[in-house]
Simulated assay, not measured.
Amino acid sequence: MAEMTVQVVTPDGLKYDHRATFIHAVTREGEIGILPGHINLIAPLKVSELKVRRVDDDNHVDWIAVNGGIIEIKDNVVTIVADSAERERDIDVSRAERAKLRAERAIEVAKQEHRPDEVQRAQVALRRALNRINVGNKY
């Protein structure tokens, strides 16, 4: 069976390192499905979930919340470099829910105070919280 290596790296170090038969990611240009033998590619990622189908079983899927970054595909090695990333089993959904509420409140306050930079920062925090909630609920 054809396979590839998937590694997710953050400033805290290697967060994920497994063999896979399929990967689904979301780049700024759109969704991408990656199979072994994919052409070499470098692309920026959106705040989104990463789906990794492991080699041991077609039903074994790992979900990873990736907060942006870069994906590089080269010679059946897929490397994701991100500011942060968490596997579904490591996400504290209640903490992510609290972060979502904080971000929503921050958006409202920043809008009332006419602070567009703060609105933008809070919207990014909200996207990250929603991504973590979505991935965390898959476990």
Rank of each mutant, 00 (worst) to 15 (best):
T5C: 12
T5G: 12
V6N: 04
Q7W: 05
Q7I: 10
V8K: 03
V8R: 02
V9I: 15
V9F: 07
V9M: 11
T10Y: 10
T10H: 13
P11E: 13
P11K: 08
D12G: 06
G13Y: 00
L14M: 13
K15P: 03
Y16T: 07
D17L: 15
D17R: 13
H18G: 06
A20S: 12
A20N: 06
T21P: 00
F22M: 15
I23C: 07
I23A: 05
H24V: 10
H24T: 07
A25F: 01
V26W: 01
V26Q: 12
T27A: 07
T27N: 02
R28M: 06
E29Q: 13
E29G: 10
E29F: 11
E31A: 13
E31T: 12
I32H: 00
I32D: 00
G33V: 05
I34S: 01
L35Y: 10
L35P: 01
P36R: 07
H38K: 09
I39V: 09
I39K: 09
N40Y: 02
L41T: 12
I42W: 00
I42E: 01
I42T: 10
A43C: 09
P44Q: 11
L45F: 01
V47D: 10
V47G: 05
S48K: 01
S48N: 11
E49N: 11
E49H: 11
E49S: 14
E49R: 10
L50N: 02
K51S: 15
K51R: 15
V52G: 04
R53F: 13
R54T: 04
D56S: 12
D57K: 04
D62Y: 02
D62T: 11
W63L: 15
W63F: 14
W63M: 13
I64W: 00
A65V: 07
G69A: 06
G69H: 01
I70F: 15
I71T: 03
I71K: 05
E72C: 05
I73Q: 07
K74F: 09
D75W: 09
D75H: 13
D75K: 15
N76R: 05
V77T: 14
V78T: 06
V81D: 05
V81I: 15
D83N: 14
S84G: 12
A85Q: 02
